[in-house]
Design a protein around this nucleic acid. Structure first.
Length: 277
DNA sequence: CTTAAGTGCTACTGAGCTAA
DNA sequence: TTAGCTCAGTAGCACTTAAG
């Protein structure tokens, strides 16, 4: 398949994921479309904002993840870049990827048991996947700061969608027409790659200015975005809105690289997955 | 007054980088 | 070589503010 041509007709989504108890408030979704060599952003919102009124804070993880799954399934002509690991380091994978996904929830009853199991089998080390080392990710996917994200993301988003055959997870699965495509994205790695890895999360003027600088940097590289959305993104002190925009941009530029994966990625990509950035 | 929602703070692991 | 620092984040707690 010619991903550069076929993929770019698809609507492009970027998701900043969260495994927190109040994940609805922390998950941000952005979307846009490819126009020539530019990316036009159409939307950027908290997941809570597109769920029913009154549910924003009362809803637990289950409802948030259900809402995210619905959103993905609705967009059968889209590609989603998600800030979430779809897999584990090869040493911790016992089966092929699809078997791993299928048995995940029965194998790991809780996020804490998932983390303990990974640590035990890795001899206390925090192992990284081959593509993560290349992408210079700061943390292992079962690190203290990330294990909930990895656990709930695989258990409640990736696994149900894959088990029901509703999505194509690349590059482990074939990209098919009529289904949403999912790829793994790392906004922090994109910023490192662009030499724009500066501190931008927080309430101080410095951090706000940093968010604006990063946004303007990507606007100079073909990101087109309305002034009202720009304000919203810079105003989000947590930086999650900006993360979702970077995820969308990363997905946009990754489209032309999708077909290269088998040639340029490590041998074990089929089981470990591949982090785009 | 009562309760829900928001804010600010701390603790928590390991790895990689830099300065000395 | 080593000390010090920062980093894909979240939970729990005390406290303040808003809504009724």
């Amino acid at each position: 398949m010619d991903f550069a041509a076929t993929g770019k007709k698809r609507r492009i989504f970027g998701v900043d994921f969260s495994g927190a108890k109040d994940s609805c408030k922390k998950i941000w979704v952005s979307s846009g479309r490819s126009v020539g060599s530019t990316l036009h952003i159409e939307d950027c919102y908290r997941l809570a904002d597109q769920m029913g009124s009154g549910s924003s804070s009362r809803s637990g993880r289950d409802e948030c993840f259900s809402a995210l799954r619905s959103l993905i399934v609705r967009e059968n002509d889209a590609v989603f870049g998600i800030d979430l690991s779809f897999s584990l380091p090869e040493h911790l994978m016992e089966y092929d990827w699809e078997s791993f996904i299928e048995s995940f929830s029965s194998k790991y009853p809780s996020a804490e048991q998932f983390r303990e199991s990974c640590r035990d089998r890795a001899g206390g080390k925090e192992l990284k996947r081959t593509s993560e080392i290349k992408a210079k990710v700061p943390f292992s996917v079962y690190n203290l700061r990330l294990y909930r994200q990895t656990y709930f993301g695989i258990r409640d988003v990736i696994s149900p969608l894959v088990n029901d055959g509703l999505v194509c997870v690349l590059p482990m699965q074939e990209a098919k027409d009529g289904k949403p495509w999912l790829i793994e994205i790392c906004p922090a790695c994109r910023l490192k790659k662009e030499d724009m890895y500066i501190q931008y999360k927080g309430k101080t003027d410095d951090r706000r200015n940093a968010r604006r600088r990063i946004l303007e940097y990507f606007m100079n590289k073909g990101l087109v975005i309305s002034s009202s959305l720009q304000k919203l993104i810079v105003a989000d002190t947590e930086g999650d809105a900006l993360d979702s925009i970077i995820a969308t941009y990363s997905t946009f530029i990754s489209l032309s690289r999708l077909s290269e994966i088998p040639d340029t990625s490590p041998e074990n990509y089929a089981i470990e997955g591949y982090t785009f950035f």
